[in-house]
Design a protein around this nucleic acid. Structure first.
Lengths: 220, 220
DNA sequence: TGGTGTATAAGTGTATACAGAAATACACCC
DNA sequence: GGGTGTATTTCTGTATACACTTATACACCA
């Protein structure tokens, strides 16, 4: 379904650098140079520069006048993003519940069913697939809020969170719990119950944060 | 106090295009071309492209594969941004109240006093100055939340709002009311009262939205 | 008259060349 | 030996050239 308009080198580099930075592959404060990246990636500086400008706009890279500084996001930043999402995603869900169409509901239902299929099937090989479907459900929710502002804000936060340190090890029990929460959100949307949708979405983000927090705490 | 690192042409073009797009100088859906902009602005395509990439990242410009599409923001988008800010700015204010230092309080006090000076002095010539100080107060608040996530999110929303259609005609009565609300926020911060700060900040954004809404409604 | 095919124009994507600034290294002088 | 001045290297910023894609216009043919 996705538009494949040839995907320029600049886009690929943007994606790769973003992923690497958010995944923590580069140290916070580490210095990079355009020429260095160009040589390393085997392309000219032009696409590198365009990728860099976008990363700067996202505030995960910073120009210093002489070289680039990796800003990235910290653990605290991510917790804060969850906190912000808890509020905004709830409001977006309320709106979605009030305006969602049957076709949009059916599409979310499909996403949910497919996700359930992969989760119950289990296996590490499907974890990428599951993560994509999880993201897709949220993106559909954002889209169905009908608000560009909500959609843009939430997409930006969600993208950073999902790429953070290759986050969220997929354990089946957690995946099932997350799925159940999605189901609750869906039911509220289907019932066009704004209040319930808002509560469910907020609670889902809160739980997701807790799941991540628990993992990290154990690691450290 | 601001860092003046020579301000590249690319940066200037970014600022200008962003301002023009958000101010409504370009029609929503209007097509632009790199070469056209380059000729019009008398520079090469290189800085144009870098500006465009940043604007794309902000979702106010969109690549179509053949030319650019002006997306901009609509009136509804801006109302939604206020709604989001109502929530997030409240939380940011709560945090700021809990951690703000005396030095930071003094800096906000200075901003406030200077704004009051210009507001009471009156006159259209100072409206730009007043707007800047107003923005500065909010930016200080964001900064003092101590959270990169809150700061980034709020700065992005605030920037778009302030540039929207050259928003907010400055009437002295409204400016005074806004100032009084800033004062309330400041008092809560100074008292390190998180709850009060959150309430005051949220209410201030709500009122700001109402002030804008009233103006627009009269215009249409 | 309508459709098709080609030529042309316009636009983006990428590489490269060049200018200028800034840090660094090194030699020279005291 | 230390400090200073200069040369060199290493960056970024900008312009330009070229490849490639696609829309468009126009002529030709059925």
């Amino acid at each position: 379904m996705k538009e494949h308009k040839s995907i320029s080198i600049a886009d690929q580099i943007f994606e790769q650098l973003e992923r690497d930075i958010l995944a923590g592959k580069y140290q916070r404060g580490e210095a990079l140079s355009e020429l260095g990246l160009a040589k390393q990636l085997g392309v000219s500086r032009t696409p590198i520069r365009e990728a860099i400008r976008r990363l700067e706009q996202e505030n995960i890279l910073q120009e210093t006048g002489r070289g680039l500084l990796v800003v990235g996001i910290s653990w605290e930043d991510m917790m804060d993003m969850y906190e912000i999402r808890m509020q905004i995603e709830g409001l977006a869900a309320r709106r979605a519940a009030e305006r969602i169409t049957d076709a949009e509901l059916a599409a979310m239902r499909d996403t949910l069913d497919l996700q359930r299929y992969y989760v119950e099937k289990g296996g590490e090989s499907n974890s990428a697939q599951i993560k994509n479907l999880d993201s897709q459900f949220h993106e559909q929710l954002y889209q169905n809020s009908g608000s560009k502002a909500y959609c843009d804000t939430l997409l930006s936060l969600h993208k950073k969170i999902t790429k953070f340190r290759m986050a969220s090890v997929s354990k089946k029990s957690r995946a099932l719990q997350s799925l159940a929460e999605h189901e609750t959100i869906y039911q509220a949307l289907a019932a066009h119950d704004g209040e319930a949708a808002a509560r469910a979405a907020t609670e889902h983000v809160r739980q997701a944060r807790e799941r991540i927090r628990t993992i990290e705490t154990k690691e450290n």
